[in-house]
Simulated assay, not measured.
Amino acid sequence: MNAVTQAPLPWTREEFEAKLREKGQGYHIYHPFHVMMYEGKLTKEQLQCWVANRFYYQIAIPMKDAAILSNCPDKEVRKQWIVRITDHDGVDDQIGGIEAWIKLGEAVGLTREQVTSLELVSPGVRFAVDAYINFAKQRPWQESVCSSLTELFAPHIHQQRISSWPGMYPWVKEEGLMYFKKRLTEARRDVEQGLSVTLDYFSPSREMQMKALEILQFKLNVLWVIADSIMLACTDIKTEGRDYLRQPVIQIES
């Protein structure tokens, strides 16, 4: 008789969390463009390009979180998760993450209009961010929560910018760093909730745990493609001796 192959046992909660954290090796902090940023090698125009393009991701975050809420029947989860929306949109006179990012744009020399008009956002960034929003709308809320766990690796990246930018990019106005300072505490709080949901929901089987790792990889891929697109949009690239040109966009007057 053929021996019955048994499915591997699920990892312990601690082992599973360690596997999730190992995914940080593919975080966009290791993308060549970000490495250049942390080494102080970006030009003013390249840093402006990054800020302008990443704004499209910033305005998508509350929409992603609203999609999670709309799919989640658990009142207690919703009561905790909704704070993420107000963190980014702001409450009353309190500045949220979106407004803080606009101020970052102004701090690097862009105008509010240049940032909010989205005129500098590349097609690749739009495509990647839109894919992430659609994922959150269409998949079970627990999977969307899992995809948010790139926040596990975010506090380090925020602290790195706070510590290095004043020396490497002294022309950036200090008030522009408010977004990163704000996210230092918010991201750690968000990680606690998102990690708890993920460990609870995906731990019953090794198959489910592997699915969680695939979902987290999808989000890591989204962030990597965003960095790819930004680098392509703001770096001088030669293709067989020809300059790379951005896609021509014909402006139609209304």
Rank of each mutant, 00 (worst) to 15 (best):
D89Y: 12
L110F: 08
S144L: 05
D130R: 11
E99H: 07
I133A: 10
F135W: 11
W101M: 14
S122H: 12
E119H: 07
N134R: 12
V145S: 07
R78L: 02
R126F: 05
I68E: 13
D92M: 12
A128H: 01
V108R: 01
W101Q: 13
L69F: 12
L118Q: 13
A107N: 04
K75W: 06
A107H: 01
Q142T: 13
S70C: 10
D89S: 14
S70M: 13
V125R: 02
F127C: 03
P73E: 04
W81D: 07
F135I: 07
R112V: 13
L110K: 06
N134V: 03
L149V: 12
Y132L: 12
S147W: 05
I98L: 14
I68V: 15
G96L: 04
I95G: 00
Q94S: 07
V125S: 02
P73D: 08
E113A: 14
V83D: 14
T86K: 04
L120D: 06
S117Q: 10
R84W: 02
R126E: 12
A107P: 01
V77S: 02
P123L: 11
E76M: 04
A67E: 10
D89I: 11
Q138P: 00
D92C: 01
E113S: 13
W81Y: 08
V125I: 05
V108K: 01
K103Y: 12
E106M: 10
K137Y: 06
H88C: 02
K75G: 08
T116P: 03
D93E: 03
R112K: 15
D89E: 15
V115P: 02
V108C: 03
F135P: 01
T86V: 04
K75D: 14
A136K: 06
W101F: 14
E143D: 14
S148W: 12
N71C: 06
I133M: 12
R139D: 00
R78S: 03
Q138K: 08
D74T: 09
D74R: 11
L118I: 03
A131P: 00
D87S: 05
Y132W: 15
R126Y: 06
D130I: 07
A107V: 01
Q142G: 00
R78N: 04
S117V: 13
E106H: 00
D93K: 01
P73A: 05
E76N: 07
N134E: 15
N71H: 08
R126T: 07
V115T: 13
Q114P: 04
